[in-house]
């Protein structure tokens, strides 16, 4: 097991290295100069330009700049926003909480509703199953931005149950403010998890080993819990993990729609302002979150399925 985790961690480092290079390289190639945003289009004397370039290492070759950025990032310093004259760390720290809360809230909704509806659909055939399928189809067809507008209209404006903008203070108020954004964020993914859960449970129900359990006279509830759900948990965990990881990127849309001061919305804003350091910083944080989530899923997978860790154990 330890060897398995060590391998996964080594792969994580490699992935991050490649991703960081891609992020940095993409922004290097992107049109526009960070200085243009700072100067606001005015022409500066060459000495001043040279001074600014030297200050932000803009005169160094690409690889040197990447190296400087990377080593600083490893030490926990994501650089400085040129237009704002502020540390990227501070800018991210102010917003990461909101995004984490939103993603966590949406994840809980996805697991709660996606998995349970999928199980209900798979076990209860007929009308129940059709209902689940219908609901998941509607939900899957709702992109986050559309869901956001619809939810705001119905529950915010028409019924007035939830606030439609902002983050709120304190636990209860925060939950209240984040409920609609979390639902909007979770809608499509919940449908996906429902579908996958339903299929996984159906497939397990038809497995021979489930027939063995039935043939031994075990109560149906035991058969379902100990054999069907236990085994279906393997594919379900994978999908839930990947879905949650993708929420981090999706959150940008929802944060913008609900005027939440989170990382995703800020990433879009920073890109528009040509605030390269912030874009790089946030992208890196998102990639780290995505990759770490995947490693957690891999480890969970190995814990759930004894056949997976065989490779490393046999060596």
């Amino acid at each position: 097991m330890l060897q398995f985790i060590a391998k996964r961690l080594a792969m994580l480092v490699a992935t991050l290295l490649v991703a960081s290079f891609a992020i940095y390289g993409a922004l290097y190639l992107a049109p526009g100069s960070p200085i243009a945003a700072l100067t606001g289009g005015r022409t500066l004397p060459p000495e001043v330009m040279a001074q600014i370039e030297a200050r932000y290492h803009l005169n160094e070759p690409f690889l040197t700049r990447y190296w400087l950025w990377l080593t600083a990032a490893i030490h926990g310093d994501l650089g400085e926003s040129i237009p704002l004259h502020e540390s990227v760390n501070t800018l991210i720290a102010q917003r990461i909480g909101t995004t984490l809360q939103l993603v966590l809230f949406a994840s809980i909704l996805i697991v709660m509703f996606g998995v349970s509806l999928g199980i209900i659909g798979a076990l209860g055939r007929g009308v129940v199953d059709t209902g689940v399928l219908f609901a998941s189809t509607v939900s899957a067809a709702l992109p986050a931005f559309a869901a956001a507008v619809i939810l705001q209209f119905i529950f915010g404006v028409y019924l007035g149950w939830f606030p439609v903008l902002g983050t709120g203070d304190g636990f209860v108020d925060t939950i209240k403010h984040l409920t609609l954004p979390a639902i909007a964020l979770a809608a499509t993914s919940t449908a996906l998890v429902t579908r996958v859960t339903r299929t996984a449970v159906r497939e397990e129900l038809d497995r021979e080993h489930v027939q063995t359990a039935v043939s031994r006279g075990l109560p149906w509830s035991d058969v379902v819990r100990r054999h069907v759900l236990r085994n279906a948990a393997i594919p379900i965990t994978t999908v839930v993990g990947i879905t949650i990881a993708s929420l981090i990127a999706l959150s940008a849309v929802v944060e913008t729609a609900f005027a939440l001061n989170g990382l995703g919305a800020y990433l879009v804003q920073a890109a528009q302002n040509k605030d390269f350091a912030v874009v790089q910083g946030i992208s890196l944080v998102l990639v780290v979150a995505f990759v770490v989530t995947n490693v957690v899923v891999d480890i969970a997978y190995a814990l759930l399925d004894p056949r997976v860790s065989l490779g490393s154990r046999a060596q």
Partner: peptide
């Protein structure tokens, strides 16, 4: 269930008929 408990079945393919996890 009691009837099934009294009638034991030995299936053809043990690998498929025993829960792998």
């Amino acid at each position: 269930r009691e009837h099934r408990a009294q009638v034991a079945v030995v299936f053809q393919d043990p690998r498929a008929h025993i829960n792998p996890v």
